[in-house]
Design a protein around this nucleic acid. Structure first.
Lengths: 221, 221
DNA sequence: TGTCATCATGTGACAATGTCACTGAAGGCG
DNA sequence: CGCCTTCAGTGACATTGTCACATGATGACA
């Protein structure tokens, strides 16, 4: 897999001196992972830092009784620091990362990572910023789950998932696991959205017919 | 305020070479804060890293409609990286840190912090470990709030709050804000605990009378 | 000491969400 | 077509959150 000079793609590497970048291009491995592939899990923690060159990774957490909630998504240009966090942590946790699309990633072995953090302020800032981003994301999740209404959260998530398109290919159960709730709850609220004319549904497919209304409901009007 | 060689107190500084530690003792400022003092908030982000020498800091988040949830507590020997995270983050968040006891802290200005992270692997590991710790804490909070039962969470929190003692000095409202729920809910569950003989109550005070039973309920049997 | 203000707690009705046990519908495939 | 699996709909009920109050405890102060 040749993606050319991937160091151009990341804030943390773009700002590095040319020689350092050349060395990175040698050291790091570019790899592809198919959609659906589990990239990390409690039992399976990689010993390197992952830069996401292309695609999306969904990071989620599963409860003891099997329910799931999506914590955040990694987009191209970001790096997955949760894995580095987990390397250090001895405590139990249960987050996992799954490739949501076909993914191209660059893996940087831990020694090289350590060296860069030590020597390159730009890289260091990038790493800390990545940590911050995740912390902030989690704060948002806590806020939503603890204090948010399910219809508001669902409206917001539908808008996120649909992006610039009109349709979402997802079952009610999948959406429920986005928000950490039960399938029946999603079915009921979607039914309500449908009655109000915000969406149309068919098996495994949701068509957004009134984005503005959803935005109002989501509070992102 | 003279606390002697505080660098002895922290994993991240204990392992540093003597000369570095001596320099730290010169640069960093030891300060005390009274119980109840707000140490950081969205509007009030310190530009230095805080090492907690003595006391406890409660980090909590408040929702738009005024409800609050405790995210985690900082104990002596830990450092508060959330502030460094927030320094970098441009996004909105609403976590705040309040001194839960009188507190002695050591503040390290950002330049010195940057220098240490760059030059001292031991310090760097300490910082990353602190980040990991917080991430894991937040994962736990998400799990509890999204999937946990309120009686189980309350039992667990009561045990945490009571520590090795027998009594907790807290109102129902305060406990509710620990768990991000409503006062009435806590009242009801505590009433139930009382009927079962797990606790005794008086105004602003809860006495744990059956720790083992609470542990069983909390799943930490 | 009585009165009052304030805060902590109790309570019932109801709303929102989660759980359970089903049912029927849709689509894939022999 | 008939069978099987997955998806979605539904009603009953449990848990939790919200609201509007009532009651009780405490302390300030005339």
């Amino acid at each position: 897999m040749n993606v050319g000079d991937w160091t151009e793609r990341f804030q943390g590497t773009r700002a590095l001196p040319r020689p350092v970048r050349d060395r990175l291009l040698e050291i790091a491995r570019v790899r592809t992972y198919p959609k659906g592939r589990q990239l990390f899990a409690p039992q399976n923690i990689p010993d390197s830092l992952l830069f996401l060159y292309e695609g999306t990774i969904r990071v989620s957490q599963t409860s003891d009784n099997g329910r799931e909630i999506v914590l955040y998504r990694l987009e191209a240009g970001e790096s997955c620091v949760l894995t580095t966090a987990c390397m250090l942590a001895e405590e139990a946790y249960n987050a996992e990362g799954v490739a949501e699309t076909d993914v191209i990633g660059v893996t940087l072995p831990k020694p090289a990572f350590d060296g860069l953090v030590a020597e390159e302020p730009a890289f260091r800032d990038f790493v800390f910023a990545a940590y911050s981003r995740r912390l902030i994301d989690l704060l948002r999740v806590v806020d939503d789950v603890a204090f948010g209404r399910i219809d508001v959260r669902l409206a917001d998530r539908l808008l996120t998932l649909v992006g610039a398109n009109k349709e979402i290919a997802a079952t009610h159960a999948q959406i429920a696991s986005e928000l950490g709730t039960a399938r029946e709850v999603i079915s009921r609220v979607l039914h309500d959205f449908q009655k109000r004319g915000y969406i149309a549904q068919s098996r495994g497919r949701i068509t957004i017919t009134d984005k503005p209304a959803l935005r109002v409901l989501a509070g992102n009007a």
